[in-house]
Write a protein that binds this DNA or RNA. Structure first.
Lengths: 227, 227
DNA sequence: TTCATAGTTCGACCATAATCGAAGCATCTG
DNA sequence: CAGATGCTTCGATTATGGTCGAACTATGAA
């Protein structure tokens, strides 16, 4: 009767409150165990286990067993991307769960989107990379130019290492709430973790807030100035 | 307890099969009425109405009243973007709905889109009308030229009758799966019904297939040759 | 006006699936 | 080994929400 991918199934998976809570918890990029996710979602471990196996079957999660623990993380960047999109839609339609605490400003400024940098600083970095011609956007493809390769190598990132990875190096991740793009893919991931290594930034696992140190913010501003 | 946008609510909206069908139908970019969407989703009009008001409340749709019709389209391209992402996820996890039935070839060739002709023959007709300068496309507006007026009058269509109608005479209807336009509006409607009057074509209400008779196909080909 | 068509609202029915208790595996520790 | 911890499976209960018939409103046509 109908044609095309079964979008309803995937959406229904995300559409349950308990599962949605688990997925948002996983947006921090950190792998979590069944018990932790149960706590996040406010359900018992049995229920959580059932939910998680459904999410796994649906291809949204990547499970890893380690001893008697089972760690779950988001399956890939695409999943994170869709989740961010849904957050944008929910926020746009004024369907925020009331909570305009002080953390919101920080979240808008810099936050973790799965495992790369999002928020104002994320889009600033993206725009700056484009403006400096370190990245070029070709249709849907995003390519690192020669100067961009030098730039990130200078920053201390091993590109040949990254390329071993099967996942794409650069990816555009659209932040719907701001209608701006930021950088995902293995390079986006590497940049964020490099910022952490350099002690420029530190991420709060609980809230997805990325807080930059005074020095880190200065260095960042210098590297990714706009205009 | 929880923080952030209520992603579960939006996802649950998309997660119902009937609603998902409606949304995918609206991915064509065309505004559809409640009845059409009910047909798309395979539910009754009451059910469709209920679903649509929920989708509207959720900010996913943009409703427009036109006479006694109520047209729905996607609220904005952010919604479409999220839907695309979900399709990607569903496709990626091998959750495709099987798609190649025997009727599909017929549907691709000629089908009813609301009440005008779509499919290959629909786009052929559109292209031919443009090529013969019977129609000119001016931005978003589609205008019937003097020669076009003579052309359709020759075909036995009463234009003054059509113009009484408040609905636009010509409308472009984009078929995204083929990325081609075909002719909608009251003229598109009139053309299809004229084909039926002339016994050139007959439409199957169940499947939306439009089947041309041998003679009808020949006449059609002669009128709307391409090149 | 009267009839027809498009859509909404109400109410009742029913199916799906979320939930948790209890029991069962698996893995680590002493 | 026994005991503890992390997780899964089974079964029963429950509630949410999708569905349609029927009645109602609104717009257009004759």
């Amino acid at each position: 009767m109908k044609e095309g991918p079964d979008i309803a199934h995937v959406a229904a998976l995300i559409g349950d409150p308990a599962r949605a809570n688990m997925l948002t918890a996983l947006m921090s990029g950190k792998a979590l165990t069944v018990s932790e996710l149960a706590e996040e979602a406010g359900v018992t471990i049995q229920t959580a286990s059932s939910h998680l196996s459904k999410l796994d079957e649906g291809g949204l999660l990547r499970p890893r067993k380690q001893g008697r623990h089972k760690y779950f993380s988001l399956a890939n960047d695409e999943v994170a991307h869709v989740l961010e999109g849904l957050m944008g839609l929910a926020a746009g339609s004024g369907h925020l769960r009331k909570r305009t605490g002080p953390k919101d400003a920080e979240l808008r400024r810099a936050r973790v989107c799965y495992n790369h940098l999002a928020g104002d600083m994320g889009t600033q970095m993206f725009d700056s990379l484009i403006a400096q011609s370190h990245l070029i956007l070709d249709g849907d493809d995003l390519n690192l130019t020669r100067s961009g390769q030098a730039f990130v190598t200078d920053l201390g990132i091993d590109l040949t290492d990254l390329r071993k990875n099967k996942s794409p190096l650069c990816r555009e991740c659209l932040d719907l709430s701001e209608r701006r793009s930021h950088l995902a893919g293995s390079l986006g991931r590497a940049l964020l973790s490099r910022f952490e290594d350099l002690s420029w930034a530190r991420r709060d696992q609980k809230t997805r807030v990325v807080s930059f140190s005074a020095n880190g913010a200065k260095e960042f501003e210098q590297l990714f100035s706009v205009g």
